[in-house]
Structures are given as structure tokens and as C-alpha cells.
Amino acid sequence: MLALLAVLMLGGVAAGCGSDDDDDEGDGGGEAPISKFAIVAPEKGNDYGWNQQGVEAAEQVASDLGIEVEVADNAGYEDVSPILRELSTTAGAEFVVAQASGYNTTAPDVAAQTGVPELVWDNPEANIPETSATAGTASQEGAYLAGVLAAKTSESGNLGIVISADDTNWNKQAGGFVAGARSEDPDVEINLAQIGQAGYADTAGGKRVTEAVIADGADVVFGMGDGSSFGMLQAVEAADGVTFIDVIGDKTSIDDQGVLLSSVLWSFDGLYQDAIDDIGAGTFGEEGYELDLENGGISLLQTDLIDDETWNQLEDTKQQIIDGEIKVPLTEDKAQVEDLIAQG
């Protein structure tokens, strides 16, 4: 239903009767290899997470390059091929970002049909020259830093990880967090709890499970959940002396109680910029992209709750990861995370 609405809205825009609110034209130098690109995101671009980061990065890149961007957010998780095709044809986009791993098989097909290159997520087989390219994250590197921070901050020696689903990205970050925490304090206790099979929007479940984790002794909670993370934040705010580490976006502006210790931020600006540059150079699709600490795609949010000494140590650790002195484990499966926790 949401996807259908998005298609109808796109049709309206293409026909010249839509709002211009989503069209940003920057004031750059006009030397960009394309004049317009588009981003399709599954949910609204104001979720303080994946979708917002993607939309804001697209608008920023468009502004920097002086080109137009068409934002089609809230497109849902169903078949988005009509939206992708519409953007590539009628809407005139010369490059499309398919901002959801759920789009990663549809988008390359649409790109092959329309000839407009598409950037997809988490599909190594989608690297097809001048057609499509895949992107991924080394988010476990940022989570490692979060783990170090949590272990240094915790007074109870008990950390909680709450995830909304058995999700590859959540598992990668959970594993990085465990490794980081254990590097700081080998004896730290870590407990992992999952809200549900797909509890991304389960705010009440996020609150309920986080309350249990806190009651179990955790005084730092690392939460990964999309909409359910707002419930996690509620539970942390209601508890005494507990802090929260978020992922992907920055919830500082809604952190009324000052419990947000940090967030593993994902920034897409450089990724989109690199993809557009590669389109200009004719090398798009020859290889994939990855967000990591080194290219700034992954970073740790600095808040007032982190003192200078701790932050400096985190900066040192970050450099050690970049230099390869610290190897962060990659745990794409939840069983790997649980094994890592059990090793403590």
C-alpha cells in the first residue's frame, strides 16, 4: 500500500503536479558527472536511523555537487521495481540508490533493464560494471569502540545487548561490541536478548526486554532496533544510573534525560559521493563499497557523557583498528555472537 502511494506520488512529481519539497538542487560547481540522482528508502526519512541517515546524506551530496536529488522514502519492503523504474525513466534520475538490503535483487534487474546504474546493499553478486554496485558496512569496527566505551563506563560490570531481530547487521555489531568490551575488561558480564522474530517496530517489546536486561544488572545497554529502540530508550530513562548506546543515527535531540552515552553512526555521504565519482570515471560496478572507520562511514558519536581521557583512548583504539593492529571479529550469525559471549 505504501509502495503504491509512493508510485502515485512519483507519477505526480513526474507530471509536474507534485510538491518540490523532496527535490533539492544544490549550488555546487556543476562539474558533476550526473545532473540528478534518486534515493529509495523503505521508511520515512525522519526515523533517527537508517532511512534518515540515507536521505540526509543524499541531500548533502546533491547540495555539494550542485545536482538534483529525488527522495522516494517510505517505499515499504514490498516489490519496489515500479518505483525504481519510474525514477530511472520518467523522473529522469541518472543514478539510483536502493537504500535497503531487501531491494538488492530487484534493483540490479531494474538497472539492467533501464541502463541507469543502481547502488544496492549487501549483495556481492550485484557488482556489474556500469550497471550496479553493492555496498556493505564494517559496522563491527564502530561497535568495538562502543564496547570499549561501555566497559569503561559500567560500574556494575554488567552490559546488556538488546536486538530487535536476528539481523546480520545487528549480529555484526553485537560481536564487535562484545570483543571491544572484553578487550577493556575480560571479566565483564554481557547478556544478549532479542525482542522477537522481526521486532523492528515493537516499541513496547523494546521497553519490556530492556527493562528485564536492566533488572538483570546491566547499567549500559547497547540497543539495535529501529522503531523499537525508542522503547529501549524509554526503559533506560526510567532506570537509575543506566546509559544507552544506539546505532546508525543520532538521537541526541530527543534524549531528554541525558542517558544517551553514544551511538555507532553510519554515514553515507562519502559512499554516495564515491559512487557518483565512479560513474563519471566509468568504473562504477567494478568493485563494491564498504563503510568503515577509515573512510569515516562508521564512527562513534561523542556526547557530554564521555570524558576527554576516555575519548582520547577511543581515538587511539580507532587508529589501531584502522592500522590493522586490532582485528575485530566478524559475526554475521547470532550463534557466533553467542559463542563469543560464552567465551568470557
Binding site: G196, G199, A201, D202, T203, A204, G205, G206, K207, R208, G227, S228, F230, G231, Q234, A238
Partner: peptide
């Protein structure tokens, strides 16, 4: 009850 007591907020598709 779900919004006020259970979650303390509202999120789209909150009923799950």
C-alpha cells in the same frame, strides 16, 4: 494501554 503504559510512546505499526 499499549501506547501509554506498554511503550510510553507511539511508533507506526506498534501493535505488531
Amino acid at each position: 494501554y499499549l501506547a501509554i503504559v506498554g511503550a510510553g510512546s507511539f511508533t507506526p505499526f506498534i501493535t505488531q
